[in-house]
Design a protein around this nucleic acid. Structure first.
Lengths: 165, 165
DNA sequence: CTTGACCTTCAAGTCGGGTTGAAGGTGTGT
DNA sequence: ACACACCTTCAACCCGACTTGAAGGTCAAG
């Protein structure tokens, strides 16, 4: 096997399947420790760094956010066993994914019903001032929180005349 | 019939279930036309404005982006019948949602398998330098594009000669 | 010596769909 | 007269996970 040939950031990036700026970004937010530097300032990585980046990508692929991955890594560095924490997070993610699937199923059923109704109608007849397809959509389609992109919360504010709490 | 009592923005917001800044935002990006103003500059809306905002929310709930809704509204204002366009978009969205459901199903199966394996193991034994749970995760879990957040693409770049290792 | 593919840092931009804040004017109930 | 909830504009900020750009230094090949 070869010498202790330290890897440049681009080589680590290539092996781990990410871009070089991504690795710097991971370092910046504390996911990766600061690597040794050559005399000219180049980052020098070992093979294990590649594994660490792959670890991050795997955890990401399992649905963990970078924040959560940071938690896990911090726990593991502090000597604690993060596995029980990871296990707990795993169950949480599983539940979240299953709920999301249920939401999407419901959403798909609603949308499929609407689209089927659209297909069954005559275009020329149904187009009024706006598109009647959408205007007439079932109220049940709304407020299910299952659109393609996750939404940010939109808290309501009190109004004059409305006795809120 | 009732008076022509124009609505203030907050009343429209309340009736449509959005915030007042959201309505101004919709106006700003061209989803809503510019309303009449009172002598002191207040926006004055009609009941139909409430319907228009509800239309937007419905379309959003059906998975349309604000850009797409803008297209639909523009088409409808230009006298074209947007319905066939809407129908086409509806089918596209339906296909996208179904694909996403398939991805999530696959993802859930992988994750469930992992988590089940985690549960079957002894925590004290499996925790090495990092969390073995994630480090040992099945390669199949990765690269399925089914994580909770959608990812952006990451194009590869050519490298200088790959010398040694 | 020059080319140019690599590396460095820092800053800013991207995406969507808004929210939040400051500074100031308006309308109304008491 | 005063309080206070509403309205106005404009600009900046938020989320996550990066990407992109500028300006400059380094290294190996030709």
């Amino acid at each position: 096997m070869g010498e202790m040939v330290a890897l440049l950031i681009g080589e680590v990036a290539q092996r781990a399947g990410v871009s070089a700026p991504t690795i710097r970004y991971y370092e910046e937010i504390g996911l990766l420790g600061k690597p040794l530097r050559s005399s000219t300032g180049y980052r020098r990585y070992s093979e294990s760094s590649v594994e660490q980046v792959r670890f991050i990508r795997k955890a990401q692929a399992l649905g963990f956010s970078l924040d959560e991955i940071g938690e896990i890594l911090k726990l593991s560095r502090s000597g604690e066993t993060p596995c029980s924490h990871v296990r707990s997070l795993g169950h949480q993610h599983l539940a979240a994914v299953e709920q999301r699937i249920r939401q999407l199923h419901h959403f798909r059923d609603q949308l499929a019903e609407e689209v089927a109704r659209w297909d069954a109608q005559d275009t020329a007849v149904t187009c009024g001032g706006l598109c009647q397809f959408i205007a007439d959509a079932e109220p049940g389609v709304m407020n299910d929180g299952a659109s393609l992109q996750p939404k940010t919360s939109r808290p309501q504010r009190r109004r004059r005349g409305v006795t809120g709490q």
